[in-house]
Design a protein around this nucleic acid. Structure first.
Lengths: 197, 197
DNA sequence: ACCTGAACACCGTTCAAGT
DNA sequence: ACCTGAACACCGTTCAAGT
């Protein structure tokens, strides 16, 4: 038949947007060329004019998520001067809220070759942000690195545990007490405890 | 043709074991009836005599992992009297080691209906174990709950971050300093900091 | 340049028929 | 009781042919 019989021609972007929607709704497996084609009113064959294969589509979707998501989230948070307040803000805005569905889908496949590079870039930006908090708090670099790692790994696990209704039940209501713990700087306590052993 | 032409008859257990191997090697998607049938030298039709569908197979594999894995890991660790030592032991044996491949595969699909119930049972046992550490340390219940959650969420994120070669680079070498932080009990520090604001 | 339609491979599922 | 073999549906991929 002729060029889309009245319908608008599709762009690479149309397919990518549709892929992100599918990703959010059903994870990586839901990104099916056949289903997207049906949704967009095209044939699967059409897809292969815009993309080499399904993998290239997923890569494009990840890249788009990366741009729209992490890049513009960091600057406003960075503006908060007091590092403890900055972490508290982060916990309220990012830890205690429901996490974006696309992120959940991607975080579930951290070692898929299609997902790994984009995800790694995002993780690095966020770890840097956290490291700066603990540096500003006066911790030496090695300790700031450790705490950033702890805080970010906690972020991942916190949201992953929240996905399972049965385990979500154990989730603490507010995370402020954990901010207190994570920002302890006085080394006296730890020294004391070590000496007492 | 006749009953397996010389070959041994297959049991439900044979299929389940093969499913666990596939799970470890390639995650949930790798558990394919067709591939398992080929590996076991049977037809796909044979599979459906033992199981209702692919989902039932995955459930059976999860249940087996649950038994073989968490149940017998807890008692030896529970024997350590000093709670700080108990946590340090846990970090060395469970956090710093590579995590079992099946667990990684399952943790990546925490909200799949086939995986969720078994995974939730395991999580509950482990959270209880952690809670006891912090209770024995003298923390009130609410605080023990929070720290157990923090410690377990960290466990998940720590291993997930370790799967991506690019992010694994930021991983701290030893986790002992984090044990120190997680077991801080003196509330003086936190009070002091709060007063200083 | 962008798309269709038919073809093939892979795999989940069903089921009648075999032993 | 346990299995085969053929059939069907779903979906990724290719490609010749259309406009």
């Amino acid at each position: 038949m002729a060029s889309r019989a009245g319908r608008r021609l599709l762009t690479r972007d149309d397919w990518t947007r549709a892929a992100l929607e599918a990703l959010a709704e059903g994870g990586v497996t839901a990104v099916s060329v056949e289903r997207l084609a049906k949704k967009l009113g095209a044939t699967r064959g059409s897809f292969y004019w815009h993309f080499r294969d399904r993998g290239e589509l997923i890569e494009a979707a990840v890249a788009r998520w990366e741009r729209e998501n992490t890049i513009e989230l960091i600057p406003p948070a960075e503006a908060i001067g007091d590092p403890v307040e900055r972490l508290r803000h982060l916990f309220r805005e990012v830890y205690e809220r429901e996490v974006d569905a696309v992120e959940l889908a991607l975080a579930s496949a951290p070692d898929e070759p299609l997902v790994a590079p984009g995800l790694a870039r995002v993780v690095r930006m966020r770890l840097d942000f956290l490291r700066r908090i603990f540096s500003d708090l006066g911790l030496p670099d090695a300790e700031a690195d450790e705490r950033a790692w702890l805080a970010y790994a906690f972020y991942i696990g916190h949201h992953q545990l929240g996905r399972n209704p049965a385990t979500r039940a154990s989730r603490p209501g507010r995370l402020d007490p954990l901010v207190e713990l994570l920002t302890v700087t006085n080394s006296r306590d730890r020294d004391q405890r070590r000496d007492a052993r």
